[in-house]
């Protein structure tokens, strides 16, 4: 198949890459752009380790084909920290002990971010639902839920402080 120019915004940078239209977004990110923070766990949209944020929504990048992201905006784990400074969520994951093997971590952080960007005061059930497409075999999820709660509290604290 002929390659085509794919225009997209990845982690804030507008870019164009020539790719095969049959390519999965996951492979565009990992193999073309070298953004290996996005992992592959099952290739069938069941585990969520390949999660990225597409136009504000969490998606499994193994289920998205390159043409589907034409002109759209993608955030991967590499785009969460800004200027070498960790995002509140990343800090909360470290503090709450939400990281063990780390393989689900990028997807989990992005799932948490997609939630908090829309809902700044989620309850536990909402957090669990937001990360329910992301499997973790190490932590038993409890500390991941706590990390998202902690980040939510800190974010709204910060917003409150600056917004007042």
């Amino acid at each position: 198949m002929d390659r085509f120019p794919l225009h997209m915004k990845v982690n804030g940078t507008q870019m164009t890459v020539d790719v095969d239209p049959g390519m999965r977004l996951l492979d565009v990110l990992r193999d073309v752009l070298g953004l290996t923070g996005t992992k592959e766990g099952c290739g069938e949209g069941e585990c969520g380790v390949c999660s990225v944020i597409l136009d504000g929504k969490i998606v499994d990048s193994c289920l998205v084909l390159a043409p589907q992201v034409q002109g759209r905006e993608i955030i991967t784990i590499e785009g969460v920290a800004r200027n070498g400074e960790l995002d509140i969520l990343q800090e909360a994951f470290l503090e709450a002990g939400a990281v063990q093997c780390g393989f689900c971590t990028p997807g989990m952080i992005l799932a948490g971010k997609a939630l908090l960007d829309k809902n700044s005061h989620p309850d536990r059930r909402e957090i669990a639902r937001a990360i329910s497409g992301n499997l973790c075999r190490c932590t038993g999820y409890a500390k991941i839920v706590k990390a998202v709660e902690l980040a939510a509290a800190r974010r709204s604290g910060k917003e409150g402080a600056t917004g007042a």
């Binding site: 099952c42 069941e46 957090i127 669990a128 639902r129 499997l135 075999r137 038993g140």
Partner: peptide, 17 residues
């Protein structure tokens, strides 16, 4: 031999621990 047919607990299944 797939995650769609071999199910493990998700965040929605967890009890209070």
């Amino acid at each position: 031999p797939a995650l769609s047919t071999y199910l493990i607990p998700t965040a929605l299944d967890i009890p209070e621990m």
